[in-house]
């Protein structure tokens, strides 16, 4: 948009930023708005907004309908209808997981505590620099880690540290999922029980370490609870991730199921792989 002729030079700068806005609506009724603007750092950014409008009809009581038309008052006097972002915001998504066994929540916590207690006295040793932190948090990871992979392997073997043993095959540099490494079943402890110091990191680490199955060839109608139900019989499930299409929100045909125990996952893999479900044959394998 060119600046109006009569605008002062100070305004011109403002006008430069907000220019072309593209808007289109696709077959699914999703409106995409792309606008380019210049942010505080003076960089041009592309902002893509995808919105889907859904008209929901709701029958309400007459008095409720009448109240909707009330003029705002008090501190809201004169404000236009609709939620004011200053007072009303939408929080992050929270899952209310309902379970029939009241103990689930506590059990996991206790296990966690137990693990923590066990690890209290265990010495944590970095495989790269032998410091008392986790290998993944080593400050020398980038500089030492790569070139000396073989050397550290040897060192780790020598030191027979608390850390999990590396795969014996010579491919030291090839990444192997933690749960597929030799001692994952017994040795998943050292890095999973980080404790409360850095919740985010430890949670992610824990998740990555968990034995996870990849389930493919699921039908479109499958939902998380379905997957949960299917695998729950084999043992405690810590996480179910079902890939969904961003637009249509239907299942994309695969899911990841994380178990707490590796044995359970193994049993589930053997039992469910090749089984029919929703007129499709499921394929289950270890997630890579």
């Amino acid at each position: 948009m060119p600046a109006p002729k009569n605008a002062s030079w100070a305004d011109e700068v403002e006008y430069e930023g907000e220019d072309q806005v593209e808007t289109w609506t696709d077959a699914n009724g999703i409106t995409t708005t792309i606008e380019y603007r210049i942010n505080e750092d003076g960089k041009k950014v592309k902002v893509t907004r995808r919105t889907q409008k859904k008209l929901i009809h709701d029958r309400v009581n007459k008095s409720v309908a009448a109240r909707k038309k009330w003029a705002k008052f008090g501190k809201e006097r004169g404000n236009k209808p609709g939620p004011d972002p200053a007072t009303t915001t939408v929080g992050e998504n929270i899952k209310l997981k309902l379970s029939s066994t009241g103990q689930v929540v506590q059990d996991v916590d206790e296990k966690h505590e137990e693990m923590k207690a066990q690890l209290q006295n265990k010495k944590i040793a970095c495989r790269i620099c032998k410091g008392d932190h986790f290998t993944s948090k080593c400050p020398y990871k980038d500089s030492l880690g790569m070139e000396d992979a073989a050397a550290t392997n040897a060192a780790a073997a020598e030191a027979k540290a608390a850390a999990e043993p590396e795969p014996s095959s010579g491919t030291g540099s090839k990444y192997i999922a933690p749960h597929l490494r030799g001692g994952a079943g017994a040795g998943s402890g050292p890095s999973s029980g980080v404790g409360g110091s850095k919740m985010g990191d430890s949670a992610r680490e824990k998740r990555d370490e968990q034995p996870t199955l990849r389930v493919t060839n699921l039908s479109e109608d499958v939902t998380e609870p379905d997957v949960y139900e299917l695998f729950n019989r084999f043992g405690h499930i810590s996480r179910v991730f079902l890939a969904r299409d961003r637009e249509t929100n239907v299942c994309k045909g695969f899911a990841f199921v994380s178990f707490t125990m590796r044995e359970d996952a193994q049993r589930a893999l053997e039992a469910v792989d090749g089984r029919g479900y929703d007129n499709l044959i499921l394929h289950v394998e270890w997630a890579k």
Partner: peptide, 10 residues
């Protein structure tokens, strides 16, 4: 239903 503030009583 949407968290809109109707008003305040002061």
């Amino acid at each position: 239903h949407n968290g809109e503030r109707l008003g305040t009583y002061e």
